Simulated scan of single mutants.
Amino acid sequence: MEDHVSLIKQEMRSLATTYLTDGSMLEYANCFIEHKFTEPMKFGPLTVLHYDMFGGKGKAVYLAASSIELFVLASDILDDLQDQDAPQQPWSRAPLPVALHLAASFMTLSQQAIAACGEEPAIVLRTMEMMNRQLLTAANGQMADILDAVIDEESYFDVVKKKSAALLVLACMTGVMLSGRSWHAGVAEYALELGIAAQIENDRRDLLRWDEKSDFLQRKKTALTLYLLEDLGEKDRWVADYYEGRLPASSIEGRENDFSELCERSGAMLYGAALFNLHFNRFMELLAGVPEAARRSDDILRLVAGRTNQVETPQ
């Protein structure tokens, strides 16, 4: 898989150099792209792996994989700018108009990459139509997240399926369809379950953080925070008061250990682990039901092994 990652990186650099001819724009683009290379790459390699699994031949898939990674990068930039919770990222330190412009440009570059991948025009068109549907699904999920539309567990899973899980479906299905196949319901199902499991694990990690990425400090609603707030005792009412805006951030300074102890005592962390296992086990069951995937299950598992604790789905 490391060879795949290197070839995807090469395509991303080449696309930026070819199409971003303004010197300052290219400088910022290279900075953002190089920063992305410091993180484990999963989406693009999933595209390459599924292309191979379903009989795809040649190197056209690396442009397609770079298309996926460029869109994920654009999504990361926009998400961080919207949430204002990642001040150390290079796009957060860049002037806001520049960061927004680069995010929009990466989205356009993503489309250019898939259009120029070299496969038969009919195959490329079908793949692009699928990609655009998934990207619009993710856009709807992102809007729901921005508007804080999560009010219960049902709405939480609806947002996760539309947002982060939709991008995993996109990555896998791009490889399938670029190989000449049509939409594969089995692949879409297991990719969706993997995306849900990954988001739940991200939420478990972010629940216990005590920095700008903390779901609690950001008053973010997830399945875990909703569970935590459901039945608080009197001594823990400060958590609900903070979440509902009755207490300022200054009033909870120094209470990290109290909050961590509550997360364990309430069963919120155990609940998160149970949710994760439910969806990851379902992913494994569905994976075994797709012959092409079952034959390459070891490769898939090696690729996604770190997904739930090393690589964030766009949140």
Rank of each mutant, 00 (worst) to 15 (best):
D80E: 04
N257G: 06
I123C: 15
R13M: 15
L135V: 11
A188V: 08
V150F: 00
K221R: 15
L96N: 07
V124W: 02
L228Q: 00
E312I: 08
A65L: 02
N277F: 12
L286S: 09
E129W: 05
D80W: 05
G118S: 01
Q10M: 11
N257K: 12
A274S: 14
Y51T: 05
K163N: 09
L207N: 09
A165S: 03
L301W: 06
R255V: 00
M1A: 15
W210I: 01
E129F: 08
V169E: 14
I8C: 07
L232Y: 09
H50K: 02
A122L: 10
L49W: 08
L96A: 12
S110W: 06
E119N: 13
T225R: 02
L15R: 04
A293C: 15
D211Q: 04
G175K: 00
V176A: 04
L178Y: 07
T225N: 03
P40F: 11
T174L: 01
F54Y: 13
I200Q: 01
L278Y: 08
Y51L: 11
M173Q: 15
M53E: 09
T127C: 10
S105H: 07
G23Q: 14
A166I: 01
L70N: 02
S105M: 10
G289Q: 12
L301H: 10
R295C: 14
L81S: 02
D80Y: 05
L192W: 09
M25D: 09
E11L: 04
Y28A: 14
L135S: 08
C263L: 02
L301K: 13
L178G: 10
W183F: 15
G23N: 12
P291I: 04
R133I: 11
V311D: 03
L278C: 07
E2W: 12
G55R: 07
E234C: 06
L247E: 00
P97S: 03
I77W: 05
E230N: 15
L278Q: 10
P248I: 02
R205F: 13
L167W: 06
V48W: 00
D215T: 08
R265N: 14
Y242R: 12
K220D: 06
S6F: 09
A293Q: 11
A144I: 08
M284R: 13
T313R: 12
T18F: 13
G186R: 05
S67C: 06
E189S: 14
M25H: 11
Q199T: 10
I8W: 06
A64W: 04
S266K: 14
A99R: 00
M131L: 11
T313P: 13
P90W: 01
G233V: 11
H4Y: 10
H50R: 03
G267I: 01
E285L: 14
A197N: 02
Q134I: 07
M41R: 11
A165D: 00
L147A: 10
A273Y: 09
Y227C: 09
S110V: 06
L70P: 01
L207M: 15
Q82S: 12
L20A: 07
E34M: 07
R181N: 14
I300K: 05
L287E: 05
V304L: 12
T21L: 15
D206P: 01
A65G: 03
R246G: 06
A165G: 00
F280Q: 03
E234D: 13
G289R: 10
E69G: 04
K57L: 14
G195W: 03
M12C: 13
A29N: 05
L125A: 09
P97E: 01
M128R: 15
P314Q: 06
H279A: 10
